[in-house]
Amino acid sequence: MRSISWKTYLAAFVISAFLFGFGILAGTYLTQSVNDGLELQLESLKGRSGEVELLLSMNASQALLCPSLEAQLSEFDRQTTAFGAKLDLLENTRGRTDATVLRLKKEYMVQQARDFLLVQKINGYCGTSIPTILFFYTNQDCPECTRQGLVGPVLKQKRPDVMIYAFDVDLKAPIVDALQKVNAVNTYPSLVVNGQTLPGYRSADAIEQKLEG
């Protein structure tokens, strides 16, 4: 029987196992650092909305408070939109069923609901009419939902003053269920434009008309 290079096989196995393990750890670390980065940004968004809530709870005059609130809201909206885009990218690259994607999306939706309610409060307190759109969609066999999802960024470019909040109903967040009930949403996609519920797909122009109407 011919010789077999057992020692070399063993050494190769140990080195390969080490490199393999290093690769897995490095990959996991890098993936986790992406997750951590997004978590931090989400925490920052929560902190900012907490500050806005704190401002609203102060008994300061409207003249004093409202300019500050509107400025905060504008910056806040910019950060939230940027975070939403990153979350979309994460969903596209890691897949819809990725555990981190699902968790971050759910937290983000809760944050969006909080923002929407804050905007309602600011509108009431400051007498402003900051336009809002709630967009309810599902990923289960809904090509119109996908079409509607593409309209949001286009509209936001035309109308940067509009606050758009998107809710994936498949994630079953209680606050999203409550918002649906309050606005009588039972088909998808559905939009709630300044409090008016519009079932089915709407183009950017049609939504603009509703905003102006």
Binding site: L19, F20, F22, G23, I24, L25, A26, G27, T28, L30, T31, V34, K86, L89, L90, N92, T93, R94
Partner: peptide, 24 residues
């Protein structure tokens, strides 16, 4: 295709341990 569809940020976001192994 992460790089073609989303650029460098897409590659960073979509990074998996298998990608690091492939690089090794």
């Amino acid at each position: 295709n992460l790089l073609l569809s989303y650029g460098i940020e897409g590659v960073w976001f979509g990074l998996k341990p298998l990608h690091v192994l492939s690089a090794i």
